[in-house]
Design a protein around this nucleic acid. Sequence first.
DNA 1: CACACGCGTGGATACGTTTTCAAGCATCCC
DNA 2: GGGATGCTTGAAAACGTATCCACGCGTGTG
Lengths: 354, 354
Amino acid sequence: MEKRATIKDVAEAAGVGIATVSRVLSGGSASPETRERVLAVAAQLDYRPSATGRNLRQRRTGGLGLLVPDVTDTFFGRLADGVLAYARSAGEPVVLAATGADPEQESEMIGMLLEQSVDRVVAVPAGDAETWRPAVRAGMTVVFADRLPLESADGAEPDDDAPDRDLLLLDGLPVAAPPRPLDAPAVLADDRSGIRTAVRYLTGLGHRRIAYLGGPGHHGRVEAFREALGAPVDEELIVFATGTRDSAYAAASGLFQSRPDVTAVVAGGNVLGEAAVLAARELDLRVPQDVSLIMFDDVPWAELCSPPLTVIAQPGRDIGYRAAELALRTGARRPRTVVLPTELIVRASCGPHR
Amino acid sequence: MEKRATIKDVAEAAGVGIATVSRVLSGGSASPETRERVLAVAAQLDYRPSATGRNLRQRRTGGLGLLVPDVTDTFFGRLADGVLAYARSAGEPVVLAATGADPEQESEMIGMLLEQSVDRVVAVPAGDAETWRPAVRAGMTVVFADRLPLESADGAEPDDDAPDRDLLLLDGLPVAAPPRPLDAPAVLADDRSGIRTAVRYLTGLGHRRIAYLGGPGHHGRVEAFREALGAPVDEELIVFATGTRDSAYAAASGLFQSRPDVTAVVAGGNVLGEAAVLAARELDLRVPQDVSLIMFDDVPWAELCSPPLTVIAQPGRDIGYRAAELALRTGARRPRTVVLPTELIVRASCGPHR
DNA sequence: CACACGCGTGGATACGTTTTCAAGCATCCC
DNA sequence: GGGATGCTTGAAAACGTATCCACGCGTGTG
């Protein structure tokens, strides 16, 4: 366990000043012979500049933060893969943290990143806009991926209860400072279009009582579902889980039991979809004879499932890649939001209304 | 974007020296009133000590490196989840990198971690022992998870070709320094026992022509397979993939086509298992009537598969958790290797030999 | 009463780097 | 030929922290 060589060691061994070493290594100007000598010595000593020293001096850290609700969800795995790919090409390390879909834990992790001086982050947010305001006010460059943080009820008076908010809405002109949206770009899948396609596909097959099984976040997907379904939406057919597998299963099972009349369900994510086929099987509902099933997010096992699942595919890896690019590529004015297309992949889990 | 408060700001605002602030915040001694005042000021300024400054001063970084071949593989997702869980409880950030099962990329990532002064790493190694020697010699505390690095052919003379190595071996006393095994602990699943159980289960069902479908690493699993199968092993029935999904599918498909006489296959990992059921389905082989299938590693979709897959479950999350614990918990003498149990979960993908 | 001792405190230093600044030197143009 | 200009170079400062050391003060002991 020998101690690492420092820039000072290199300078001494090469008979130059440390400033020269620094210049040579960061591509500054130097005479050819000096440069060559320094490079040779550095290589021979196996010198690696200390990122800590550099970061301290430059008052910023290289490095990209990555915040996801759950590393176990394969969608976030693909997203992380994309982030890692871009970060690697940019030579930046990425520090990963899981939030467990819990705003409080998310705040804690943001604090940790702040402490590490990680000033660029791609995040799949769990908390609302208020959770994130401290981060962007601290100068963090944050890029949201997959979903946006909920608009917080009110920035100035978090204690407000419903009546007050109604008043504010009725008023039209908010009394307190408006909860101006976070100044952060985002890269998302085209939820609306994806859900619309799914619903149209199902209605085209004759389905009328279609349920939506949603997780946390993705408000847009629910909205799109309501929208695509047309006017009278049976609110009982829209159920939510918290993000854990257990909760997803409970939601799916509860839905099937309380409303045996549903003929089709669209699952808002792969763990929801998994829960739905599990629950259906447990209740002896045949797919697609008894109930049709369509899932947002394509995963490898969708094809292996019985029956193979019809899905709305979304480019998880690309989402991560583009988000990392937005977070890391500084300089050019960044687009506010990029939306990536989804695709309906028809397999065998949807059938005509019986 | 206000600049962060430094320890100096806190000291001035509290009317004390920076040394006192540092002491108070790191639990040193101070008079109660001073302590209280400093804490109040720190809280009011929202002061966060800079990890960079601290790390530079202390010549080490908090932080845990995590190196996995592929974040997309759900097994590594669970492993990462465990690592994150322990790291969070220890208050340490984790920097993640994917190696793509490529030793060269792995070396690159090790270098990156070294540069970041990340001196503790849990790794699912891709390269051989030689790839890792620089890391441990640089003072890194590395804990291997899930698998061990291959013993490198020879440490001192990497250019050796076969004849020389034979000579060395015949000699009995190696000329160069012996390739002493890496001085690093590891936490592994009980591969041998798991595979043995799987093979016995299959032979108990009457199977004789059993194939093994392996990925990179996990030399122990193959060995155990040979061992459990008894003396004459048909080498054609042991095939390997490189770690990508495509390669796994090609291997599985090739196996089924070249040896239609196999009646059972054990897949050495979840992506191999996935590939096997895909390939079987593509070739119209019914599971388990035409071929029985057993997979190492339990995953959520195994139950959803048609038929539900019989698996050897391994505690991926625990592996990560324990590995992180070993890497982070300093002081106490660490065990050399911890082996976690596996469990046979019988579902429906194995039938009696037809 | 003098002395030692313990405790709380702050100044100074070092960690490894980048960057500024001025100096040394050769070259070029008028 | 002289001054200006360009290039290379090294000393020094700064980034934010932890820690060593010395100092002042109050208390207990000889």
